[in-house]
Design a protein around this nucleic acid. Structure first.
Lengths: 213, 213
DNA sequence: GTCATACCATTGGTATACCAGTAAGGCTAA
DNA sequence: TTAGCCTTACTGGTATACCAATGGTATGAC
């Protein structure tokens, strides 16, 4: 059985990412409690987790707000990703690729050949690829920390359907480069490749971001 | 005012690290509630945080237990540290050392000259140095993630006063190497140095650990 | 009109009663 | 004696009543 807390977490998270809960308006525990038809306790537990994941900020006695990410926050998050995914790629390369990871090679190559493919599909595949790297690292702590980061990034990425066409395509090539380094069991190379990739992604993200401010 | 939840967190954490709460016995929320003279709510909040920090494990309706780290867990934690502290050192080197960080150079050199110094003092200084690197990276997310890891490591480190004399001394030289790379604004070098350092620390830790199993 | 103040609605923090699930120990039947 | 069920005590999960602090607003003095 899934607990109420868990369901509350999922639902509130969804409401935030879909922007049904605006970032400038306080959300009260009682309001959510009523809205979701649950007591305050599971709501509080969910909010606690969301705060830990960096999705909301609680100001005691003032209110709870959806976190509004600054450009600096975005940079911070990406730097952390470099650290975490860098070591993940390093480890994955050191122990050799999983079969799951290898299965991405063909898909990426197909995407490069076929320029008509859906941007969303590509993007989804990219996320899966990143997760697969974490998996291949064989480190449970790493896996645990990944989740929180993913949610935070979602906070910035859902907002616009501002896909930069060229950028999305470029990522495929970058992913392929990472994958090949892991396949070649070249830890440093894999790490370098993912650093480069995330650095590029941050630049692109920052550009989109600044258009919104 | 510091909230009850906060105080509960600190106190329970202390009780765990000092091993006043054994790892094989369940600890109940009600027991802690009574012991600390607080309601169950702040206790639950504290336990939630402790679980998040990897210090305890909650089995619904069975009990809450102090987490018992396996050697694999220890390795996982150190690998995460490599990721996080690696990028921290990288960033610190890229932006140049803080004055706080530089102040460690003299202290380390003094320690190398004076072989009579207290092992505990050296060790404490080492922890402070690692924290200073995080600070120097200028990244708040990194700082946040550091805390959780520190607690987990405490879980393994408090246990024995099993200081390996030679190992502790060796760390000073390794710290100095890291510091100098940051000072020279050599990101890759700093990262390499900290990888090496943590890798050595893990080996030493694993050795002590295995003696206990 | 403006500023100070006192009140009040609303927030998160806390304590606690109650619920549901678990497992261990004793009791019963073979 | 032993296998198996069933009671019971205890766990964490949930709902909710109450508390203290905050900030907006209405009111009244100037």
């Amino acid at each position: 059985m899934t607990t109420h807390s868990r369901r509350a977490y999922e639902e509130i998270r969804r409401l935030i990412l879909v922007r049904e809960i605006p970032s400038d308006e306080p959300i009260s525990e009682r309001g959510l409690s009523e809205r979701l038809g649950l007591g305050r306790t599971p709501i509080r537990e969910a909010l606690k987790d969301l705060e830990r994941d960096g999705l909301i900020e609680v100001s005691p006695r003032r209110g709870t707000f959806v976190r509004r990410l600054s450009l600096a926050d975005l940079r911070d998050i990406y730097e952390v990703r470099m650290g975490l995914e860098g070591i993940a790629a390093f480890l994955a390369a050191a122990r050799g690729p999983t079969s799951q990871l290898l299965s991405f090679e063909e898909k990426f190559e197909k995407l490069l050949d076929d320029p008509s493919s859906e941007l969303l599909t590509i993007q989804k595949l990219g996320w899966d690829f990143h997760d697969a790297i974490y998996e291949a690292a064989g480190n449970r702590e790493l896996l645990r920390l990944n989740t929180g980061l993913r949610n935070q990034i979602g906070l910035t990425m859902e907002l616009p359907r501002h896909h930069d066409h060229d950028r999305v395509r470029a990522t495929v090539a970058e992913h392929l480069k990472i994958l090949r380094a892991i396949k070649a069991m070249d830890p440093e190379g894999a790490q370098r490749a993912i650093y480069q990739h995330l650095s590029n992604a941050l630049s692109a993200g920052a550009q989109i971001f600044s258009k919104f401010e």
